Every structure is written in C-alpha cells, then in structure tokens.
Computed example of a mutant assay.
Amino acid sequence: MKKTMIAAALLACGSGSAFAQSAVTIYGTVDAAYVRESGGAAGTSNKITSGAAAASRIGFRGTEDLGGGMSALFTLETGFRLDTGEVDSSGTIFNRQAFVGLKTRAGTLTVGRQYTPWHQALTQVGDPFSTGYAGGAKNLFPDFGSNVRASNTVMYAAPATAGFTADIAYSAGEQGGDSSAGEQAGASVGYASGPLNVRLAYNHKNSDVAAAPGVTPVNRSVGRNLLLAANYDFKVVKAYFAYSKDEGFNSAPLGNNSNPFGGVPPTASTDGNEMLLGLSAPVGAGTLLASVMRKDDKTSFNQDARSWGVGYLHPLSKRTNLYAVYGSIDNENGAGYTVANNSESGTGDRAFNLGVRHNF
C-alpha cells in the first residue's frame, strides 16, 4: 500500500488550508533476479542483478490543489541497484524522473527530466513485457538513451476526450550559438476504448554539436523514430503489435556497443525498422507472456536480427510477483543485438531471468 504523507508535515510553516489540500506519496519498486546470459564472446555469465523486470526505484509524487480546477504536481524518482545498494547512475540523484508542473481542465504542463512519448507508447501499449525481462522489446527496438528519457523537457498532455489522448514534448539542447543543436522533440496521439488500445508516436533528435571555444562543431543527420503500437483484449488472450521506423544518426542506438560477439563490429543502424507481435494470456493463477520480433536493417551492412521471448508471471499478492522469462536472438551479418532486461543491455544472444518484484 502506498505511503501517503500530508505535504504540510514536510513544510512545517504551512497553513491549515495547505495541510488539507496537499499530499506527497512515496512509491517504488524492489526487483531482484538470477540472470544467466550466454552466447557472447565473453562466455556464459551467471549473476544476481537488480531490475530485470522493472528497475528498482524509489520516488516521491506530490500534488497541491490550487483551486479553480488547477493543481500543482511534481515527481522525483531515483533508481538503485538492489544487488549492491548503489545508485544505478553515478553522479545523479533523481536520474529517472524529475519534473514539476501544473494541471488544469485544459491539460497538464510539466517541466524537467521525463519519459519520451515514443518510449511510453512502446512500454504502455506495444510490448507485452513492458520493455522489461529477457523477452522485452529492448532486445531489438532502440529503447535506449534519450529515446527513453530526455532532460530539459517541457511536455504538454491534453485531457483524455472520448477515448482520445495526445501529448507533445520539447527538450532544449542548451548549446550556445545554435538553438537546434542537441534538441529533441516528440509527440503521440492515442485512442483507447473497450478492448482496443492504439497509439502513434514520433521522436525527433538532433545530435549536432555547436561551435564553442575549444570545441569543433559537428553536423549530423537528424534521428527520427515513428512508432505504431496497439493491443486488443480478446479476454482469453491479449494481442500486441508494434512497428517502428528509424532514420538518421543515433535513431537506433545499440544497447551493447562493445562488440559482444567478436568478429565483425556491430554498427548502429541509421535506416531500418522493427516489428513485434506478442500476447499475454491468463494461465492458472498467473500470466503467460510471449513475443516475436524482427529487425530489418536497410543500410549496406544489412545487420538484421530476429528475437523471441516467453515468460510466466505468478502473483503472490497484488504487489508481489515471481517471474521466469527466457529470451533468444538470431543475429545476421555481424549484428550485435543482445538479450537485455529492463536495467541491463545484456552480453549474449540468450538469457534467462528468475526473479521477484515488489511494488510499494
């Protein structure tokens, strides 16, 4: 059960009115797993890891009623490694999410470090594994780096109307002398009604480096990602679909850039697409998950890949699950795709996860 505190308890000087209208919620995920990875040049790896299903984290979420249908809100969320107790990104505090905003009847405006609309569409709509576990979309889809989260972001989300949703985001590059260098933008539009949930998302990323004293300017092609994600609940089974088209520099970053299989060095595609077909189905007390994916690299390297994954989630309560998941990748022409999980990019073309996840 989420732990809720009155915000005025944190603000000792707050008034009685603030005490009644403001609240802060502490939430998080604690996830640990045994992970076995094989097929890479470094050989088989057996380890205890954190966040195979969903990254271990602790967060603070707050709201304040400002009256007239307006409220203030914030989220501060940090990740940590359960296996070692360390933060999962050195030199950061709230590396996962850190934003503040206002919500009105006209929509919600937030400012700070946030998830991209492209990532949200893949996680919430297109992937039965929600981009976690050994079977998740991260195995072939470019769900890494700033495709997942972007700093310096202003995002507007329209209120849901008759099943339709929409959002738009802009991330400033913050490089002097060139307003477009380093900037990123994204948007999505979706429709959810009854058993159908579909969303179209776009991501636009400029990786240029602006000229500055001691800095050589760099001009690169703009990275673009277009994603169509959908699922349909047939009751006995829920079907999933995702298709992403990627073009330009850094549009499809590899999770593991260190030549994990030896031989021909893998090269991040600058022209390609990915497709996923998946399902989730109730089996016994738990849920069966499965997906198949393929990567079509249209560059001259032709580094295609295919992947499949299957898993079973067994609930011990509403907040605690056991899981067992297996994923496999078939790389072609020196492609370097690795079986990932939610928190790690992976080291080989096969992996098994056995773990427990608790949400609070």
Rank of each mutant, 00 (worst) to 15 (best):
269 S>C: 09
260 P>R: 06
223 G>R: 05
282 P>R: 01
213 P>I: 11
242 A>N: 04
285 A>Y: 14
244 S>M: 11
222 V>Y: 11
210 A>K: 00
221 S>M: 13
276 L>T: 07
267 T>E: 12
211 A>L: 03
281 A>C: 10
269 S>N: 02
223 G>D: 06
265 P>D: 13
256 N>A: 04
214 G>D: 08
208 D>R: 01
213 P>C: 06
241 F>K: 05
222 V>M: 13
228 L>V: 14
270 T>S: 15
285 A>T: 13
209 V>R: 06
287 T>M: 14
284 G>I: 10
303 Q>V: 10
239 A>Q: 06
269 S>D: 07
304 D>C: 06
261 F>G: 12
288 L>F: 11
227 L>V: 05
246 D>G: 14
281 A>N: 09
276 L>F: 03
275 M>P: 05
224 R>T: 14
235 K>L: 08
214 G>V: 05
223 G>V: 04
238 K>R: 10
222 V>G: 15
274 E>D: 09
232 Y>L: 02
228 L>T: 09
230 A>I: 01
303 Q>C: 10
295 K>T: 10
242 A>E: 00
279 L>F: 10
285 A>F: 09
213 P>S: 11
247 E>G: 15
298 K>Q: 13
232 Y>W: 04
268 A>D: 03
212 A>H: 01
267 T>N: 13
282 P>M: 07
286 G>H: 05
208 D>I: 00
270 T>D: 14
286 G>L: 07
210 A>Q: 00
252 A>R: 06
261 F>D: 08
210 A>L: 00
267 T>K: 14
279 L>A: 13
278 G>Q: 00
252 A>G: 03
221 S>E: 14
289 L>D: 06
296 D>K: 14
269 S>E: 08
288 L>A: 06
237 V>L: 00
274 E>K: 11
223 G>W: 09
241 F>D: 05
237 V>H: 01
231 N>V: 02
257 N>R: 14
232 Y>S: 00
217 P>D: 03
210 A>Y: 02
251 S>W: 02
290 A>W: 03
290 A>E: 01
299 T>F: 13
259 N>K: 07
263 G>W: 10
233 D>C: 03
292 V>T: 13
219 N>P: 00
227 L>R: 08
217 P>V: 05
223 G>K: 06
233 D>P: 01
240 Y>C: 01
234 F>K: 00
234 F>I: 01
209 V>L: 04
225 N>R: 14
300 S>H: 12
277 L>W: 07
301 F>Q: 15
253 P>F: 03
244 S>A: 15
221 S>P: 08
260 P>G: 07
236 V>L: 03
261 F>N: 13
